[in-house]
Simulated scan of single mutants.
Amino acid sequence: MKKVAHILARKGAHVLTVHPQEKVIHALQLMNEKNIGSLVVVEDNEYLGIVTERDYARKVIIRGKSSQDTTVEEIMSTGLPRITPENSIDTCMHIMSENNIRYLPVFEGDKLCGIVSINDVVTETILAQKETIAQLESYIHS
């Protein structure tokens, strides 16, 4: 069974962060530049939450707020479930489905060590299926 550690090994554990007092427009520009859908919100190297494109759409656009006046802290998601590198990919899928979320922070103890997205989970599932198919084909042909 593949684990979160496999995802982090494949994609890396580097996490892009933003300060809670930054304006939302800055966070959006960074997400656009890096072609990602979320940023980790930190202050004094402490994890506070995650800000996502969905947060922007639901908490800024729909409410008629300005991304130039609104801070990240006002719209970030907090209290998300936490996972560890030892959690399985199936566990991630279950947690994401149950909570209707697309990103999970990964912690080793109290230290943030990565972020897993729904895209990461789907990609890892597809890679695992391809590996299983290759093994079965090899078995059949031997």
Rank of each mutant, 00 (worst) to 15 (best):
D55W: 07
T84K: 14
T17R: 12
T125G: 14
E131K: 08
T91S: 12
E33H: 13
I83Q: 03
I115D: 11
Y139F: 08
R58V: 02
K59Y: 09
K65V: 11
I118D: 04
L80D: 02
R102K: 15
I140Q: 08
I126P: 03
I83F: 04
G114L: 11
I7L: 12
L112H: 08
I36V: 11
S138P: 02
M93P: 00
I101P: 07
E124W: 06
H94N: 10
E108Q: 11
V72C: 01
L104V: 14
Y47A: 03
R63E: 14
R10L: 11
Y56V: 01
S142P: 01
V24H: 00
V116E: 08
K130S: 04
L30S: 08
L48A: 02
S142Q: 07
M76P: 00
D69H: 00
Y103M: 06
V122N: 10
V60C: 00
A134W: 03
V24F: 01
K130T: 11
E73Y: 06
V4D: 03
I7H: 06
T123E: 15
E131N: 09
I101M: 05
G114I: 06
E131M: 05
T71P: 02
E98R: 15
K34S: 11
T52K: 01
A27L: 14
Q135C: 07
K34Y: 15
L136R: 10
R63P: 01
D120F: 05
M93K: 14
M96V: 05
E86M: 12
E137S: 04
D110W: 03
V122F: 08
H14C: 01
S142W: 05
A5F: 05
K65C: 05
D120N: 15
V41S: 00
Q29R: 14
V41C: 01
L80K: 02
K65P: 00
K3W: 00
G109C: 13
G79C: 09
G64C: 10
V18H: 03
H6F: 06
T84Y: 08
Q21N: 15
L48G: 02
V15R: 15
Q129E: 13
Y103F: 14
G109L: 07
F107V: 13
V116T: 10
V121N: 12
R10W: 12
Y56C: 00
D44A: 11
D55Q: 06
V122P: 03
L28A: 14
Y139C: 06
K3C: 04
I89L: 13
T125W: 11
Y139P: 04
L127S: 13
T84D: 03
